[in-house]
Amino acid sequence: MKVTFTVNGQRVSADEVWEGESLLYILRERLGLYGSKNACEQGECGSCSVYVDGTLVCACLVLGGQAQGRDIVTVEGIADGHALHPVQQAFVEAGAVQCGFCTPGLIVAAHDLLRHTPEPTTVEIREALAGNICRCTGYAKILDAVHLAAERMAST
């Protein structure tokens, strides 16, 4: 089947999509958007977090056909061209990245949190990111990064 949708502002189509394919598979294997990661395929790790019509979801749990006509934003669409988004910059500076596999999903999830809650408490950050597993950092530097991004976004 053919699936057509918007990703990061661009209209895209994927042909000969197998009906059982997830949005994540289409993004990675058919559109070459490797930012969203495949780590569990059951919504338990958050590594494939993307926006579908502005809502934060796990791309692995969206059936490809369900993306038809939708507006998708992936981690590749968070930055403004080559300039990192403040959330991304904060992750780099705070040391919130070790192996980096969870990072794209966390960037999107943290971005979503700060859209709704510009000045989150540590507890609010913990709750909002509870669906994003990180195996390397123990999360402390990730919490630091979100606070840092919030501060910077508030002051601009």
Binding site: C40, E127, G138, A140
Partner: peptide, 17 residues
């Protein structure tokens, strides 16, 4: 053999160090 039943610590499990 899945992340549903092999549980890893989340942000709400890992305390400050």
């Amino acid at each position: 053999p899945s992340f549903t039943d092999y549980l890893l610590p989340t942000t709400l499990d890992m305390p400050p160090v």
